[in-house]
């Protein structure tokens, strides 16, 4: 952990806007931001660990516990909402036996409801590991996830 985190910090040492960049890279590396990583960052950047947590915990995409292997972001913001996002959410929750915000039992998916993915021309939409799927129907949403299971 020590070496990996220090390596990430060194990569951003010269950046002016380092903290977010470091946190992103740490999260990419470990799947979440471990407490020990925060301590190392604090030491290296001469900050207090609490100051880093104060910043990091503000943002909705930073997480501090391990999550499922795939991240599914379902948009329920206004456009997606009026175009049926609720139905999709309900269907996914039934199908995968979770509520939004949770991880499936097998640790495969973590589902999150999000406020706007910026693809409203294709509403309703969801994003799986950064890839966008638009013009969803409940069936299609399930199908997409089942397909990527194989």
């Amino acid at each position: 952990m020590e070496d990996k985190v220090v390596e990430i910090i060194e990569k951003h040492r010269k950046d002016d806007a380092k903290l977010l960049a470091i946190l992103h890279d740490v999260q990419d590396k470990f799947g979440y931001i471990p407490e020990d990583a925060i301590k190392i960052i604090a030491r290296e950047l001469k900050m207090k660990k609490g100051e880093i947590y104060d910043t990091a915990s503000f943002y909705s995409f930073f997480r501090f516990k391990p999550e499922g292997r795939h991240e599914v972001l379902v948009c329920d913001c206004i456009v997606c909402h009026i175009k049926g996002a609720e139905d999709i959410i309900k269907r996914l929750e039934d199908e995968f036996k979770v509520t939004m915000g949770e991880t499936t039992k097998d640790g495969k998916y973590t589902f999150k409801m999000v406020e706007g993915l910026g693809h409203c021309e294709e509403s309703p939409v969801m994003m799986v590991d950064g890839k966008l799927y638009g013009n969803l129907t409940p069936d299609r949403a399930v199908e997409i996830l089942r397909r990527c299971e194989q």
């Binding site: 950046d15 002016d16 806007a17 977010l20 960049a21 946190l23 992103h24 503000f58 943002y59 909705s60 995409f61 930073f62 999000v114 406020e115 706007g116």
Partner: peptide
């Protein structure tokens, strides 16, 4: 220019 990536906050 430095590109900065946000982390989810309107």
């Amino acid at each position: 220019i430095e590109v900065v990536l946000g982390a989810g906050a309107y």
